[in-house]
Design a protein around this nucleic acid. Structure first.
Length: 300
DNA sequence: TAAACGTGGTA
DNA sequence: TTACCAAGTTT
């Protein structure tokens, strides 16, 4: 544990102001409307990992209509899940979500577990998602630490432009200290802090003049230092394995039958070695299937 | 622990 | 146009 000097006061008043702001400014999103539907919350949280709300909305509606329960999704094939994932990105999430559904059916009587540690053990659910599900779907008091909440806390109580590259122990301690004792209020704070980070306390262009706690922000007080400082270098995209894997997967999603990928016209400009490497990794990930080695054909 | 993992909107 | 970035997880 860090020394007590690093643990801020509860700061109940600032927390309450964020909650009030959310009540008047929060978006009405479908997975919030039916917050008692744990499966819907879980699906939304997985889809929202590193993915903007606007892109998730139509896919979430499709998935909930098609697979309204863990049992329903558990009955789908991996290929169906990957195809239905469309262009949401990080398609391994589709496989893991389906595996998650199967585990829920197999080990939890088809009911989404309500314990954070149990959820954390399911495929595709990490610290953030497990906390989000117990908070938003079950109303349990816990600290939900996503990139939005981390940024809000880093600025308001830390005076820093951005949180560290990975979640630190100190961040968790500080975050938990801010969570209200009352479970219902803790949920409002979690979702309100996330929404504040998503709509106002933006990473690059924060709208501090619209912020309900601008007079409580250590970072704004300090003159917003460090904005625009590059933290982690980005990997090049053009020509990367990621790009090639994405192109391959796009072809596989569209194809209704196995297709030749080693001599595919749209992959002509890809280095054969890289193509082989990407195909191999996709097969290893369960995102592609070698149908015929002789013909070089693959399917989902 | 660092690196890998998709995609498309925005400035 | 390039670069950033959006409710992270896994190995």
């Amino acid at each position: 544990m860090p020394p007590a000097s690093e643990v801020p006061n509860r700061d109940t008043d600032t927390v309450r102001r964020v909650v009030r702001w959310f009540e008047g400014n929060g978006r009405t999103l479908p997975w919030r409307e039916a917050a008692d539907h744990a499966w819907g919350v879980l699906v939304s949280e997985v889809m929202l990992q590193q993915t903007p709300v606007a892109r998730v909305l139509p896919l979430w509606r499709e998935w909930m209509a098609r697979w309204p329960s863990p049992e329903a999704l558990a009955g789908a094939s991996p290929a169906e899940a990957v195809r239905a994932w469309g262009r949401l990105g990080y398609p391994r999430r589709a496989l893991r979500l389906r595996e998650c559904a199967a585990a829920i059916v197999r080990d939890h009587q088809g009911q989404v577990p309500c314990e954070e540690s149990v959820l954390r053990a399911l495929p595709g659910l990490g610290d953030y998602t497990a906390a989000a599900v117990v908070s938003f779907a079950f109303g349990t008091r816990t600290a939900v630490l996503d990139t939005n909440v981390r940024r809000v806390i880093a600025r308001v109580w830390g005076g820093e432009a951005l949180p560290p590259g990975h979640t630190t122990r100190a961040e968790r301690v500080r975050a938990l200290a801010l969570v209200p004792d009352d479970p219902k209020e803790s949920v409002r704070w979690n979702i309100g802090a996330m929404e504040l980070g998503a709509l106002v306390c933006l990473s690059r262009n924060p709208r501090c003049d619209e912020c309900p706690i601008q007079d409580r922000c250590a970072w704004l007080d300090a003159g917003r230092p460090g904005l625009g400082v590059r933290t982690t270098p980005r990997q090049p995209w053009h020509g990367s394995d990621r790009q090639v894997r994405g192109r391959i997967l796009a072809l596989l999603r569209e194809a209704s039958a196995p297709i030749n990928l080693t001599e595919h016209a749209s992959l002509e400009n890809v280095d054969p070695g890289q193509l082989d490497r990407c195909l191999e990794s996709l097969v290893a990930d369960g995102l592609a299937r070698l149908v015929s080695a002789e013909q070089g054909t693959f399917g989902l």
